[in-house]
C-alpha cells in the first residue's frame, strides 16, 4: 500500500513538470495571433489529421523520453494521452486568461483554438520532464536511443523538426520571407541548412551528439544522416504548411521557396532533437 502512494507521488512530480513544459514550450504560440485565427479557420479535416499525427508523435516521444519511465506500448499510449490532456488543460486555461477565448464564442470556435494550441503544449508537456527534471534515467534513455537504430534516429529528427517548424509555420512571416527571396537566396538558405544540420549533429560536440558510424566516410555519413535529415525536415515543413492551408492554390515554385524557408528552422530542430528530446 505504501509503495503505491510513493509511486503516485512520483507520478505527480512528473505531471507537475509536464505542466511546466507545456507552459514554457507552448507560450510562444499561445501569444501568436495567427494561431488563434487558424484554430477556427483551418480545414477541420486537416486539424483532425494534425491532432492524430501529434498523438502518434507523443507515443513515440514517450518511448524515448517521456515524463516517466515506460515499459510497454500501453504505457506509452497512456502517457501520450496524459501529455495531451496536460496540453489541452494548459492551453484552455491560458487562452481564457489571455481573453483569446470568451464564453460568448461558439463551441466550434473554442474547441478549434484549444485543439490547435494543444499541439505545441502537449509536445512541451512530454519534453517537460527531460528539460525541467533531474537526469535520473539518462542511461536508460541513451540505451533506448542506441537500440532504436536508424529508424529511431529518423523519428527523433522528425519530432525535433516538427516542434521547431510548428513554432514558426503559423506566422505570416514565413510566406512574406518566401515572397521576397530570390532563387539565389533560397539556394543559399538551403545550403546553409544542410551545412548547419551536418555540423550540429556530427562535429561540434553538443550533448547527445552522434558518433560517426564506424568506418563511415564523410560522404556516406552525409548521404545517410544529413541528407536524410534534411529530407525529413522538408517533408515535415510541407505537412505543416499544408495543414495551415498555406500551400492551397500556390504555384510549385513558390511552395519550394516556402519549404526552404521553413526547412531552415525544421532542419535545426532535427539537428538538435537529441538535445531537446
Amino acid at each position: 500500500m505504501n509503495e503505491v502512494t510513493v509511486t503516485s507521488e512520483r507520478y505527480a512530480i512528473g505531471l507537475a513538470r509536464a505542466f511546466g513544459g507545456a507552459i514554457i514550450f507552448g507560450l510562444p504560440l499561445l501569444m501568436t495571433m495567427e494561431m488563434w485565427s487558424l484554430g477556427f479557420s483551418m480545414g477541420r479535416g486537416r486539424l483532425l489529421l494534425l491532432m492524430g499525427f501529434t498523438l502518434a508523435v507523443l507515443v513515440g516521444l514517450s518511448y524515448f523520453s517521456g515524463f516517466e519511465k515506460t515499459f510497454s506500448l500501453k504505457e506509452d499510449a497512456m502517457d501520450a494521452f496524459a501529455a495531451f490532456g496536460v496540453g489541452v488543460i494548459t492551453s484552455a486555461v491560458l487562452l481564457v486568461v489571455l481573453a483569446v477565448i470568451t464564453f460568448d464564442m461558439s463551441w466550434g470556435d473554442i474547441v478549434g483554438r484549444v485543439a490547435l494550441q494543444s499541439v505545441p503544449a502537449s509536445i512541451g508537456a512530454m519534453l517537460g520532464r527531460k528539460q525541467l527534471g533531474d537526469e535520473q534515467d539518462m542511461d536508460a534513455e541513451e540505451e533506448r536511443k542506441r537500440e532504436a537504430g536508424y529508424g529511431g534516429e529518423l523519428f527523433l529528427m522528425l519530432a525535433g523538426a516538427l516542434f521547431l517548424a510548428f513554432n514558426m509555420a503559423p506566422t505570416e512571416e514565413m510566406i512574406l520571407i518566401a515572397f521576397q527571396m530570390t532563387p539565389w537566396h533560397a539556394l543559399a538558405l538551403g545550403v546553409l541548412s544542410l551545412g548547419l544540420l551536418h555540423v550540429f549533429v556530427y562535429s561540434i560536440g553538443f550533448s547527445g551528439q552522434e558518433n560517426r558510424p564506424e568506418g563511415g566516410t564523410f560522404l556516406s555519413t552525409f548521404l545517410h544522416f544529413t541528407l536524410a535529415g534534411y529530407g525529413v525536415a522538408l517533408l515535415v515543413s510541407l505537412y505543416v504548411l499544408w495543414s495551415f492551408g498555406r500551400t492551397d492554390g500556390v504555384s510549385v515554385a513558390e511552395i519550394a521557396n516556402m519549404l526552404v524557408v521553413l526547412g531552415f528552422p525544421a532542419s535545426l530542430g532535427a539537428a538538435t532533437a537529441r538535445l531537446v528530446v
Binding site: S8, Y11, V88
Partner: peptide, 17 residues
C-alpha cells in the same frame, strides 16, 4: 503497480482526446 494518478491522468487525457 501503476499509480492511480497515472490512470486518472491518462483517463482525463483520453476523455479530452
Amino acid at each position: 503497480q501503476m499509480p492511480w494518478l497515472e490512470w486518472l491522468a491518462s483517463a482525463i487525457g483520453l476523455l479530452l482526446v
